[in-house]
């Protein structure tokens, strides 16, 4: 459904991505791992249209979305949950969720049903719904960010470092939810992670980025046994 072909991308005139190609199928969880500065977030932002991509092209269900304005890409159904959560801190949890649905029309009832669905997926958010999102803990803020993304009925959900800065127990929760979203709601997921162990465990395919290039790609199961991955990313 999403096809990235030979994309170069620039970030402040420094070429951050070289000749990247990847593909995401209909119910996949695809992961992208790599160290800090490898270009993982730049790739995600190039798909969203926040970073300018050069050469190559990005297509989504046949539509060319290369360098499309980010708000249009969102309306096309590609939803990015950005690194560092970037929730709206001065708005309540409920308002944050409602803003997630900005790109689609919902009736009052439809909105309530959708929010109820999010509370079932993230029961903690129900208790916190009238609190300012900025007052929540890191893990809760990550739940708000993912729920806010799901509120847009994504056709493709892109998660940028959902485990960043979270306690290990909460990281487990987050990955459990990612798997549930993929299985129950049939939403394909593009997952960018530094936590290679978790990323390989939940995804079916994995791309390894180094210095803005894809150096290894393959099924996550095989990669998690490969010597090179174990040495470089799994601390073996």
């Amino acid at each position: 459904m999403l096809k990235v072909e030979h994309i170069d991308a620039y970030y402040d005139k420094i070429c951050a991505l070289h000749d990247i190609s990847l593909e995401i199928g209909d119910d996949d969880i695809i992961s992208i791992i790599g160290s800090n500065g490898a270009g993982k977030s730049t790739l995600m932002n190039a798909i969203s249209g926040i970073v300018y991509g050069k050469n190559g092209r990005i297509t989504f269900n046949g539509k060319n979305i290369t360098n499309q304005k980010p708000y249009i890409t969102t309306r096309d159904g590609i939803i990015q949950v950005p690194e560092g959560r970037e929730i709206f801190p001065k708005m309540t949890v409920l308002e944050n969720l409602e803003m997630g649905s900005y790109s689609i029309r919902r009736t009052r009832q439809g909105m309530n049903d959708k929010i109820e669905e999010m509370y079932e997926l993230f029961p903690k958010l129900r208790d916190r719904k009238s609190q300012k999102a900025g007052s929540l803990s890191g893990g809760e803020q990550q739940m708000v960010a993912i729920a806010r993304g799901l509120m847009a009925d994504p056709k493709l959900l892109m998660l940028d470092e959902p485990s960043l800065g979270l306690a290990p127990v909460i990281v487990d929760d987050v990955f459990h939810i990612i798997e549930r979203v993929n299985k129950e709601k049939k939403i394909p997921i593009l997952l960018v992670e530094q936590n290679a162990f978790m990323a390989l465990e939940v995804s079916s395919r994995c791309y390894v980025l180094e210095n803005g290039r894809v150096v290894i790609e393959g099924s996550s199961e095989e990669l998690s046994k490969s010597d090179r991955i174990v040495k470089a990313y799994l601390g073996g």
């Binding site: 980010p70 708000y71 309306r75 970037e86 001065k90 803003m99």
Partner: peptide
Amino acid sequence: KAMRCVAQNKRASSLMGIN
């Protein structure tokens, strides 16, 4: 509401589909 979002975080606003 979109005005308040834009005031808080422009990048996140555009990811919500706000022009």
